[in-house]
């Protein structure tokens, strides 16, 4: 692609052991992420969609090292050093240009801090702004996210969910990040507020050229907001394509299932094909072959025997399925 790459992720893998803590030992491991790779261009949005437990949040968190992945490589802003192997001090400095917007606006703001303080804490800590300018800076960013400047002197509990999400966004963009992980930023908001926040995210992207990793379970939101969409299932990317292409021509049976069951305003009741009533497999004992095989209407012996690789089937369109060509 012609655009500059902001983030390049290679073979991100993460598993947890199931020990309860203390000194118990257990061999069982949860395979949360297996070899997830993607890249995001400058000013672009990659949508990551899938059901709970598919690894989309783990992806967002482990590439920022909120949780340390087992292996993989992350190259940020064209650098040729792996972000994942940076020592802690350098990692923290490097990470200031990457930000995270959380799903739950009620849990992501310190209830005992004033909003102005929340927004300017990071730049103050790193000497990017002076203490006497802090209030001014916070007001400027409150204005960008569409909140009145009095908000700086209030506490989070005085705001609604949508307003809190704006404060979250202000806190993220005050660091002038090149890249933001948006982890389900609208899923806990009311319908009438969702579009406000989605439009705000789009405006910010336009103005600052920020790249997003947009994580959501709602397929229509992801299609709408993303340039490219990756569908995850049981810790793997099973299909990846530009948003419109994926919408018009989904190849993986799981993508098709997601599209079929997504609630739509079309006057029709939900339709479920026979066999589509399974559930996501347990991540502790993944099947030998394709993780979706159990639920797949077109699975064959091959699918149950070996894991299909993510292969390019068409320009910019990758699918991990033996049957989808």
């Amino acid at each position: 692609m012609m655009t500059e790459t902001v983030l390049e992720v290679k073979n991100l893998t993460k598993s947890y052991s199931l020990k309860a803590g203390g000194f118990s030992f257990s061999k069982e491991r949860v395979h949360a992420l297996s070899d997830v790779s993607f890249s995001i261009g400058k000013g672009k949005t990659l949508g990551l969609v899938g059901e709970s437990g598919c690894g989309k949040t783990t992806t967002g968190r482990s590439l920022l090292r909120i949780i340390e992945p087992d292996r993989g490589k992350v190259f940020f802003n064209g650098s040729d050093t792996n972000f994942l192997s940076l020592p802690e001090k350098e990692m923290i400095t490097e990470r200031l240009k990457m930000q995270y917007i959380f799903q739950d606006p009620w849990q992501s703001l310190n209830p005992k801090q004033m909003v102005g303080r929340i927004i300017t804490e990071a730049p103050l800590q790193h000497g990017l702004i002076k203490r006497e300018n802090a209030l001014e800076v916070s007001k400027k960013y409150l204005d960008i996210v569409g909140l009145p400047s009095e908000a700086a002197r209030k506490y989070p509990h005085e705001f609604s969910g949508g307003q809190r999400q704006r404060i979250n966004i202000a806190r993220a963009i005050v660091m002038k990040p090149d890249f933001i992980v948006c982890d389900e930023p609208v899923s806990s908001l009311d319908v009438s507020i969702q579009s406000q926040i989605l439009n705000l995210l789009l405006d910010i992207q336009q103005e600052f050229g920020t790249s997003y990793l947009f994580i959501a379970h709602n397929l229509s939101v992801v299609f709408y907001l993303s340039d490219e969409v990756a569908v995850m299932y049981a810790g793997k990317i099973v299909e990846k394509a530009p948003s419109r292409k994926l919408y018009e021509d989904p190849r993986h049976p799981y993508t098709k299932l997601l599209m079929a069951v997504a609630p739509k305003i079309d006057g029709k009741p939900v339709s479920l094909q026979p066999g589509q009533d399974g559930e996501v497999p347990s991540l502790t004992k993944l099947p030998k072959g394709c993780s979706f095989a159990e639920r797949c209407p077109i699975a064959s012996e091959e699918c149950r025997r070996s894991i299909p690789p993510l292969k390019t089937v068409e320009f910019e369109h990758k699918v991990a399925c033996f049957k989808a060509l």
């Binding site: 990470r95 930000q99 799903q103 849990q107 310190n110 990071a122 660091m175």
Partner: peptide, 13 residues
Amino acid sequence: NRDFVVAAQLAGI
């Protein structure tokens, strides 16, 4: 593990 503590960690506090 609350998000606002994670946010503070990300801010390098």
